[in-house]
Simulated assay, not measured.
Amino acid sequence: MRPARFQEFAVETLMKAPDVQAAEPWQEEGRPFGVHITFTTGSQLWAAITAASTSDKYDRPEVPVMDEPPVEVPVPELYEDGKITPARAEQYLAAMFTNAGNAEIAHVYAYTSGEMAAEPNTHPGVGLVFHSESKIFILFQHTARAGQGKGGQPFDLQSAF
Rank of each mutant, 00 (worst) to 15 (best):
R88N: 08
E80R: 14
F6D: 05
A47R: 00
E68L: 14
T50R: 04
M15D: 12
P70M: 02
E28H: 10
Q7T: 11
E28Q: 12
E80V: 14
E8F: 14
E72A: 15
R31W: 05
P86F: 03
P76F: 00
L14G: 00
I84F: 02
P64M: 08
I37D: 00
T40E: 05
V63Y: 07
H36M: 11
P86G: 02
F39M: 08
G82Q: 06
T41C: 02
D56M: 11
Y58C: 10
A17H: 01
G34P: 04
W26S: 06
A23M: 03
F9K: 07
R88A: 14
T13S: 15
E29N: 15
V71T: 14
E28G: 09
T85D: 00
W46D: 03
I49T: 02
Q27K: 10
T41D: 03
R88W: 10
S53T: 15
D81M: 09
S43P: 12
V65C: 07
P76T: 04
V65N: 07
A48N: 04
K16P: 07
S55H: 09
A52I: 08
G34E: 03
G42T: 03
A51S: 07
P74Y: 00
P32I: 01
V75A: 01
L78P: 01
P32Y: 04
K57Y: 08
R5P: 13
T85I: 06
P64L: 05
D19P: 07
E62S: 08
E77R: 12
D59A: 11
Q44H: 04
G34T: 03
R31G: 05
E72D: 13
D59M: 10
S53C: 14
D81V: 09
K16C: 08
D81K: 08
V63E: 13
G30R: 04
A23S: 01
L78F: 02
A23C: 01
T40Y: 01
M66Y: 14
M15N: 13
A52Q: 14
P64V: 05
W46H: 00
F6E: 06
K83C: 13
P86Q: 04
L45T: 01
S55D: 12
T54I: 14
T38V: 03
D59N: 09
V65S: 04
Q7V: 15
R5E: 13
G34D: 06
E62K: 08
K16F: 06
E28L: 14
Y79N: 01
A52N: 15
M66K: 13
K83I: 15
R5V: 11
D56G: 09
R5K: 15
F6S: 09
A22L: 12
E77K: 14
S53H: 06
D19G: 09
V11D: 02
E62W: 10
E68V: 08
L78C: 02
P86I: 01
R88Q: 08
P70Q: 02
G30H: 02
G42Y: 01
Q27D: 10
Q27P: 06
W46A: 00
T41W: 05
W26G: 05
T54E: 11
F33G: 07
D56V: 07
L14E: 00
K57V: 08
A22E: 15
A22Q: 15
E24I: 12
V71P: 13
F9T: 05
